[in-house]
Amino acid sequence: MTPTVTVDLARLDANISRYGSLAREAGVALRAHVKGHRSPDIAARQVAAGAVGVAVHSAAEAMAYLEVGVTDVTVAWPWRDPWRWSRFAQLARHCAVTVHVDHPDTVTGLGAAALAHGVEVDVRIEVDTGLHRVGADPDAAGELATAVARTRGLRLAGVTGYVGLTDGAAARDRVDLGRRQARLLVAVAERIRAGGAPCPVVSVGGTPSILGALDVAGVTEVCTGAYALLDGGMARLGECAPEAVAIAVTTTVTGTDGQVPRTDADALLAGADQTWMPGVVMTGIDGAPVTAGAVSVGDEVRVLPGHVCPVVARQPLLHVLDSGGPVARWQALVRPDRA
């Protein structure tokens, strides 16, 4: 059989409600990053439940979310490609748009594109919180903020940063890590304000560290991608119970040699693990590992993917279940600005 990706509706709505309540109780806005589910249908439920908007990676992707009523979009990656800037400015004609930036050239180019299209684009300074992938050095963020504030067509909206878990130690320390990184971003925002520029938003990204971020005064928004569906990695980390995971893969056992059984979903699940949990471990819906000795060739099993993001990107048709029965099919989207 072809592996099937399912979404349990009751679990989905319970997750949306739980994380929304955590943010509301802390007096912090919640933004739904769509990288986990890539589904306008799920985003619509998140916004209806109180999320302030969505975070996307492309302007083309954003248009699909506008069609389901989303009016607030953040482009949550500091792209430096000049050809993108015009697309972001065009998007601002249709909704409230915020773009992450981490380089002076982006500030200049995005400002020129905004003026050319007769719009004003909100900008957040992406701060490197220690992953060294993207982001301005915290000590250089003030200078970049000044450049934004002086650039016509742009409006400085705040600062942002992603709290990433790089290994098991970071995963175990995730709440304190979230606090430390949130305090870093709050401090950067305070320095920007002291320099005379407005900096209303302090947005902290990351689901596993969310409790730490919500505990820090001065944080105004958390941006999280996995919270709606969750995944097996989150369950093994202790962020949620296995029965809270809303996504599962139904697959057939094709071999039982070795410790982990082979299935027809092996290609789908390959590499779908977390940085703190290297090597895909097949986890049953009860949270226990699925071992070769416990199943036979031809058995149908339902497993929790270790990492939701690559699974949905590879197999974007989501079969929606309610009380175990099929009720809908949702098409997840992968829409780059340039194919």
Rank of each mutant, 00 (worst) to 15 (best):
V127A: 03
W77Y: 14
A116C: 11
F88Q: 04
H132L: 10
P82A: 14
C95A: 10
G111A: 13
W83C: 12
V127P: 15
R93Y: 06
A96T: 12
V127I: 09
R93L: 10
I125A: 05
V123Q: 02
D81N: 09
V121P: 04
H117T: 00
T108W: 11
G109W: 14
A114S: 08
H94Q: 09
D105G: 03
D122I: 15
P82V: 12
H94P: 08
A92D: 03
A96S: 13
V134E: 10
Q90N: 11
R124G: 05
T108V: 15
Q90D: 11
L115T: 05
T98P: 01
E120S: 07
R93T: 01
R133Q: 12
A92P: 15
V123C: 01
A92T: 00
T129F: 14
C95V: 03
G135D: 06
D122V: 13
S86M: 12
V101Y: 04
R133T: 13
L91Q: 02
A92C: 07
L115I: 05
Q90T: 03
L91K: 02
W77G: 15
D105V: 14
R84S: 10
S86K: 07
T98H: 07
A89N: 03
V107M: 09
T129P: 06
V134S: 12
L91Y: 01
A89G: 05
P104C: 02
H117A: 09
D81M: 09
T108L: 09
V97G: 03
G118N: 07
V99I: 13
G130T: 05
L131K: 15
G130K: 03
D102E: 12
T108R: 04
T129V: 10
V107K: 02
E126N: 11
V119I: 01
V107W: 08
D81F: 02
A89D: 00
L91M: 05
G109K: 09
H103C: 12
V99S: 01
E120D: 09
